[in-house]
Design a protein around this nucleic acid. Structure first.
Lengths: 160, 160
DNA sequence: TAATATGTTCAGAACTTTTTGAACGATATG
DNA sequence: CATATCGTTCAAAAAGTTCTGAACATATTA
């Protein structure tokens, strides 16, 4: 195999690992990597062929990338195929996706804790409940802290 | 069932979700939650009973918590059982674990990319390789950016 | 309109992760 | 020393996740 192709493959694999490290799907990372190092856009079939995965798999994951704004469809004269290319300013897109997702989860957790706290306050008060309340107050700080951090990260990403 | 027990169960479940959101194991989160809202330490069997999971499962996961410094074994007079209680200053511990893990992965990725870059530089130079190089330079920023962010987070956590 | 070339869907297969529980070793008790 | 009570281990089961590919829908071409 061509040495250049080998290096591209290695890059695609690294992109897959990177995605995994960020809690995203491996195939999504590989697809993005593939498009990112190619000047030419690729069709579904080409992507499936290059990554040795099924067309169905590509179809689902490429649309995921499109949904995030990380890949875009290219219309090509004289072909019925959908071609895709990488949106090169990916960092912001992925960052936002991650930050937004984490924020949402933190909000859900904060809501759960508040609900418990509220129900606890209408419960009979005794030593056990007051210990529980104390603990809840400690734990409540986590989503708050996380929220603060996520804001910092977001500002950091926007500055870029 | 006792209302207070119900609320504690809800809390334990929330702790499990929180762990999941941070990329940790659900059971580890549940175990920590269980210990965290209990004044009394628990034995293996008690934890298994409360969470309705096997003793083997508890054994493995409680040691994980212990390894992180998030739970500690309590010696109790007149009992052969191991009792555990929550280390209450968990935030820093978990934060460090997460940050450290992410840093390690980013380092690995940075190394992969550098390796590719190096091999590319000894390859014949043409239009295609220079495009590839350009792209590599863009992607190289990601682990660098992440590293910077992780440092910010770490400082943030230490301030707490 | 029929045939062809696409992208999409989703049931089941393949793979991965988590959990169980029986077997085991270690330690305490009688 | 025999028995009972622990915690640990790990093979196999269960549950969860990802992938495939055949069936299908839609659009294009002849």
């Amino acid at each position: 195999m061509d040495k250049l192709e080998e290096l591209k493959d290695a890059f695609v694999e690294t992109a897959g690992q990177m995605a995994t490290s960020l809690g995203l799907s491996r195939v999504v990372g590989q697809l993005y990597g593939l498009l990112f190092v190619s000047k030419e856009p690729f069709s579904l079939d080409e992507m499936a062929e290059k990554l040795k995965i099924s067309k169905g798999n590509v179809s689902v994951n490429i649309r995921e990338l499109e949904r995030w704004g990380a890949a875009k469809k290219i219309w090509t004269k004289g072909s019925r195929k959908d071609f895709y290319e990488a949106e090169s300013d990916i960092t912001k897109v992925v960052m936002n996706k991650l930050v937004f997702g984490l924020k949402r989860r933190m909000d859900m957790i904060a809501a759960s804790i508040e609900k418990i706290e509220k129900e606890l306050s209408v419960h009979e008060q005794n030593k056990e409940t007051s210990f529980f309340k104390e603990r809840l107050n400690v734990i409540k700080e986590i989503p708050q802290t996380a929220e603060g951090l996520l804001n910092i990260i977001q500002r950091f990403a926007e500055k870029k």
